[in-house]
């Protein structure tokens, strides 16, 4: 699997972005960009080619779900793999994310093995 893919990590908590970056590096992914909410994530996505999005759900300005809907509604971005990494484990949240076209879903807390497995499963389907 191509480990040079560019991954956008979106989370309003800087430490969580750092945790995700560390876990991704452990799995061999080095090409990582960051955004602190959905609004800044959309700017990154429109300004450069991103191969994979990992986003939190609960964020100010634009939530992960709103970001997902915006990505799926944009012709240029609609096929971008989108992994939701969130503390929102309630059934209604999972259903809403699936309806909006999420590629997969990880509930915090999680291990590097779980993260890597989810990324690989998504990439294998492409």
């Amino acid at each position: 699997m191509d480990k040079n893919i560019k991954i956008l990590v979106v989370d309003d908590f800087g430490t969580m972005r750092k945790v995700l970056r560390n876990l991704l590096k452990q799995s061999g992914y080095e090409n990582i960009v960051e955004a602190e909410d959905g609004v800044s994530a959309l700017k990154v996505l429109k300004g450069q080619k991103v191969d994979f999005v990992i986003s939190d759900w609960n964020m100010p300005n634009m939530s992960g779900l709103e970001l997902l809907k915006a990505v799926r509604a944009d012709a240029d971005l609609s096929k971008t793999p989108f992994l939701m990494v969130t503390a929102e484990a309630l059934q209604e949240n999972v259903v809403a994310a699936v309806k909006a076209g999420v590629s997969n879903y990880i509930v915090k807390p999680f291990t590097s093995e779980v993260l890597n497995e989810k990324i690989q499963k998504i990439m294998e389907k492409i």
Partner: peptide, 14 residues
Amino acid sequence: RDAVGEITNMVSGV
């Protein structure tokens, strides 16, 4: 300080 917020968020979620 940032991590305490995120840990609380995760504890709330689980």
